[in-house]
Design a protein around this nucleic acid. Sequence first.
DNA 1: GAGTTTGAAACT
DNA 2: CAGTTTCAAACTC
Length: 985
Amino acid sequence: MFTNRAQQCTDELDDTTPLPELTLYDMLETPSDEQQSDVAADTGDDEEEYEDEEYLSTSANDSLNTPRPKKPNVRILENKRLTPGAPIGMALKNILGESVKLVTTPPKTTQSTEIKILNKLQTKPIKTFSNTAVKIGSTTIASTSASAAAAATTTTATTVTPKQIRGITMTQIKTTDGKVIYLQKSLPAADAQKLPVGVTTATTTTTTARLTKTVPVSSAGIRQTLLPKGVSIASTGLIKSSAGSTPITVRGITAIGSSPTKISPNATTTVTATLSTSPTTSTAGAVGNKMAIQMVRTADGKLIKLNQGTASMLLNAKAAAGALKATTTAATTTTAATTTTDTQAKAVGSPVIIKGALKQLPAGATLKTTTTSASTATSNATSPAASTALPGGKLLVQSAGKQIVVASKNIIKLSPKPGASGATASNASIQLGGKSGGVQIVRVLPSNKSGTSTLTSPQNVSIGRPRTISSNNSSSTSSNNNNSSNTTNVSITNAGKIVMKTMGGSIVPLPSMQTLVSRRGPSGAANITHAKTPSSQAQPIKHRLSDLNVQIKHMTGEGGEGPDAKKARYVISMPRVPGAPRTTPVTQQQLQKLMATRPSQVKRISLPSPVRSSKTADTSKAAADSDGGNSTGRKVYNLITKSNANGVKYMICNKTSEGKPHSVYNTTMRRGYTLNDPAKIRRGVPLTVQQAKLKQMRLQHQRKVLAHNQTKLRQAHLQKQQQKVKPTQPQQPKEQQQQDQSTQGKSGKALFDVLKPPAAPAASALDALGGSRRKHCNCSKSQCLKLYCDCFANGEFCQDCTCKDCFNNLDYEVKRERAIRSCLERNPSAFKPKITAPNSGDMRLHNKGCNCKRSGCLKNYCECYEAKIPCSSMCKCMGCRNMEDRPDVDMDSMDGLNDAKFHAKHKDVNGTQENRSNLYLTDEVIEATIMCMISRIVMNEKQNMALEDTEREVMEELGESLNQIITFAKEKNDTKQQDETKAAT
DNA sequence: GAGTTTGAAACT
DNA sequence: CAGTTTCAAACTC
């Protein structure tokens, strides 16, 4: 796999542009939602950039793998962008001097680097050394004097008086809350001359909360400035920061050379450092030789050190506020250790940052995090992370009981260090969801943004308790100040990304390390638990992205949950009688009891958030099918998703520990899967697999009950009639009935099984195949990376397919992700369900509609017909015969029926509709139905359920009862026809 | 199993 | 957005 992945990095025009973590959530969210990136909340989020168009353009451009000048724009978050020609650009130039090269390049060539500064607010008076205002839009960053009021709403014509800090010309920008941002006004002459036009170098920007302990920040050129929410540039010319530790992000500040950075013990500002894509070796190399370390301190006192190297990874070390004495030099390192443009280009495109870190880190490059914190992170902070070269091109980084193995691929493997203590050590490690003990693997996602990727640069990893791990040779990172959780953010943007965030970031563990596992548990109640083992014994099951999407939404929607809530592994235990077969025998007595207490059997089961909507406990066959016919099977999914508010992203890979991908769904994956048929849920309503199946279980349970009720009533009715006709044999029916009961009880066959219609062909086929997948693609030209391929369209990996040149597998994950993105670019709804029901119980509709011309929409060419739904106004079909007004059309039971049979049946039913209504809609049946509804009401009232829920469930009850009646009537009708046919023959 | 038909996806 | 091409599944023989 690694080899393949490496090859990917060089093929296709060297298009190694890393794809951003493509989340299913992204797929399903509306664009507007995607753009609603709460930067302020997402303090460490630098992975969201791909969501904007700039990223896309950059990405596209990166595909050419051509070095590009950077876009010298300064922009403010929330769509306040500034271009070089904009006032901010001019103002910055005024501040930074002529040495700042604001290169005007097409927007698509933008390579955005980023510096994020997390500020912890302080109320210090503002003092600025800069007397030049920076105007951003209508606002101005003033740096006229210590008086904030002196700043005008417009640009002041004052010039910056550069401040010399350690020989570096700095420009100070002071914020209203006392923070001071130093920007290197100009590069050292030597370095500046080395810089080619349009190329910037590393920059370190630091803000401190105290004037007396300001941190110099070098800046060779500010190309972008991002001010997240909560930080504004006031008309007074000051950077304002809202309460809390709102991060201030300065994006695109690049610098050259290393600058010493001091962080005062009480400094509450995070320094982020960036680096550039500068191909100049001199600067980068010089810096690298110096092994400058970039120190970052988070708003909550965490200390982050960035080592030199292309894509260093930052990990915070928690430190008590005021006690932190970490001092280090700001690291401005570039990984571009090459002098040639070509090499640089390749480096940029390299998707693996840490790749190739074969040599041991120099001692100076080892991160040292000093802290006096007595917290559990102390061990981390005081323990310098050490890296050791391992065979096979791996880099072992150890820290506080944890080992991080940085493979030659974009993978970081986290495994417990032998002898390391459990809980404490776990705090000191990169964790996925706070899990400890197991091997954790984190994928390093390459970034196509600016920056270079070096294959030889050693990587340092400092592991600390803090959440933010971010490193970047060209971009900065920010630390998360959330102390309440054990989340960890790892992000390496630029040449490579380590994206490992559980809070506000992305988690991209290796396949099989995070799996969404669904299995049947022994307990009778449906519940969902977190799996404790990364590996699973899952049967090959395919999954659907859309299903998982919803689930992950639930999973990640609980912002207040602990780290375990972020785990991507879930074991869903379905209700089942312990030891009972899938089709649990139900005696009539049981059914009667069930009938009497029916609502309680359909009681709501409070599930954890991921499957909170699941309510029903059932032992029906549907439940058995929910795991693909394998009670021990687990569904292992692969997808990337993220949460809504917290920005949590998961990549859940459907790969077993053996490396073989799973097939989540054991069903055919044709287009137009519908909700009611779990075997065809490909683009059905966006319910989770579990939800859909639980719903089906619930419905089947209701059918059981209703069928039992009907049977009981019919038998009573029949008994009456027989008593009337044959008064001499009054006991026969009763005896027969008892015998039936006994037989049923012995045979384990439920009454419903007697009454229920034959299983749908799809389900039958599914069962016949023992849960194996029925269909496999046969793509030959699309490489299974286009929507032509059903596997791909379903969000699955190809498995056991007969396709040729298949790239739809883990070995070509990059290509696959790119293809997904391509599809989404063409059609953002490409992976959304095509067939949805507006509301529960509503008729399903094809969202797009078919476009059939010749098939009359009566063949499986038609997506509507295939989905067993009538064509709607959305369709553009010609000569459509897939009409809606077919009262007998039970689309879910039409599998295998040809048109002739269909129409014959149609005609027959219509012709005798009234009679059959009288035949089956007897008073007893109606009474039973009403009883069911009343029982539901009573039970809901006992449970103090909301009226709306009660109403809804009562209506569902009615609907299911009617459905059952229809099913029963249909079956009887068919039986009758068969009997008539036999009699005729 | 080969060839044809069909309509969605992709492309222009 | 419309027309055309490509593609793979559905269908036919």
